[in-house]
C-alpha cells in the first residue's frame, strides 16, 4: 500500500477541482490557470497551458483509445463485498458506495473487448476515483478473466493502470490478487500473447509490483508517479532526501524501467502501430 505526500514527487491532485461558482470552469492545480471545462475535455484533460495531466475516468480512456462503438464490456456484474467487515475512518462498505457514486462503475476497473484501428484487443482500464484504484478481489478477478479471454481469443492484452496498490480493506485477499493476476498473465504470455501495460498517474504498490510491470511493452504517461513504496515511507525509513523527480515516469525511463513515455494524445496512434507490427509479424506470408 501506498500513501502520498509532498516531497519531491509531483502533486497528486484531487478529482478536477471545479470552480464552485461556475462548474464550466476548472482551475489547473499545477499552473492555477482557469480552463474552460469543455475545452479541457477536448484537450483530453491535459492543461493546454502547462501540460498538467488531469486524471481520466476509465470510460473516457476507453473512448479515446478504442474505435467508436466497438467496446463490449465484460464481467459487469462483479461487485465487491466487505469480506473482512472492515472499518477504519469510515466503513469499507461506505467507501465502495462512494466509489460507485463517483465513477458510475461497480469497481476500480472496467474490462472488455474492443477494437483499435480494427484490431481486436482485450482491454482493462482502472479508475483511480474508485477507492484509489486499489486492487481487491474483484479487480484481481476481472484481470484474471480478461487475460483468459485474451488467451482464448488470441487477442493482444492492454491494461491501463491507475492505482495506489492493493486494497488494504480486503486484507490478505487483496495481497493474493498480486499472485493471481501475475499467474494469469504468465499463462497468457507463455502462449505467445502480447501484453502492453500502460502506466498512468499513479501506479504504485501491489499493482506496480504485479501485473503492471509484467508488460512485454511498458508505456507511461508523462510525469506519472510510479513506484513500489510510498515516498513518505521511503523518506521516513532512509532519512535521506529523495532525488529530484524521484518515482516519476521520466525518472523510471532514465533507470531503464520503461519502454516509452507517450503523451495522452499520441497513445492511440502508438498502440495502432504496435498492434499492426504484431499482427503483420504473425501473419504467414
Amino acid at each position: 500500500m501506498i500513501s502520498f505526500s509532498k516531497g519531491n514527487t509531483p502533486k497528486i491532485v484531487k478529482p478536477q477541482e471545479k470552480n464552485i461558482e461556475n462548474p464550466d470552469w476548472i482551475k489547473c492545480p499545477s499552473c492555477r490557470s482557469i480552463q474552460y471545462a469543455k475545452q479541457l475535455e477536448e484537450n483530453l484533460s491535459v492543461c493546454p497551458k502547462c501540460n498538467f495531466y488531469f486524471k481520466l475516468s476509465a470510460s473516457k480512456r476507453i473512448e479515446i483509445l478504442l474505435d467508436e462503438n466497438t467496446f463490449e464490456e465484460t464481467d459487469t456484474d462483479l461487485s465487491s463485498f466487505d469480506i473482512l467487515k472492515f472499518s477504519d475512518t469510515k466503513p469499507y462498505t461506505q467507501r465502495l458506495e462512494e466509489g460507485i457514486q463517483k465513477t458510475n462503475h461497480l469497481e476500480a476497473i472496467i474490462t472488455g473487448l474492443g477494437n483499435i484501428e480494427n484490431t481486436r484487443v482485450a482491454i482493462g482500464v482502472m479508475d483511480f476515483d474508485f477507492v484509489g484504484g486499489s486492487m481487491g478481489i474483484v479487480v484481481g478477478e476481472k484481470i484474471v478473466r480478461l487475460a483468459d479471454k485474451a488467451r482464448l481469443n488470441h487477442t493482444p492484452l492492454i491494461l491501463v493502470s491507475s492505482s495506489g496498490g492493493a486494497r488494504m480493506q480486503e486484507g490478505i485477499f487483496s495481497l493474493m490478487q498480486m499472485a493471481r493476476t501475475s499467474a494469469a498473465i504468465g499463462k497468457f504470455q507463455e502462449q505467445g500473447g502480447l501484453y502492453i501495460s500502460i502506466l498512468t498517474n499513479p501506479t504504485t504498490g501491489g499493482v506496480s509490483a504485479s501485473f503492471a510491470f509484467l508488460g512485454d511493452i511498458i508505456i507511461a504517461e508523462p510525469s506519472s508517479v510510479i513506484g513500489f513504496a510510498g515516498a513518505r515511507i521511503i523518506e521516513q525509513t532512509t532519512k535521506q532526501k529523495l532525488p529530484a523527480g524521484f518515482q516519476t515516469a521520466e525518472f523510471l525511463l532514465d533507470h531503464g524501467q520503461l519502454d516509452k513515455i507517450v503523451e495522452r494524445k499520441n497513445m492511440r496512434k502508438l498502440l495502432t502501430r504496435l498492434l499492426q507490427f504484431y499482427s503483420k509479424g504473425k501473419t504467414k506470408a
Binding site: 498473465i185 506496480s208 509490483a209 504485479s210 513506484g227 513500489f228 510510498g230 521511503i234
Partner: peptide
C-alpha cells in the same frame, strides 16, 4: 516487507517482485 529505499526504487523493486510472482509458477 521489501525494502522501501531509494536504490530499491531505482533498480526496479516493483519489476523484481512482479517478475518472481510470474516466474515461480514456472
Amino acid at each position: 516487507g521489501a525494502y522501501p529505499g531509494i536504490a530499491a526504487e531505482e533498480h526496479g523493486q516493483s519489476e523484481a517482485i512482479a517478475y518472481n510472482l510470474r516466474e515461480m509458477f514456472r
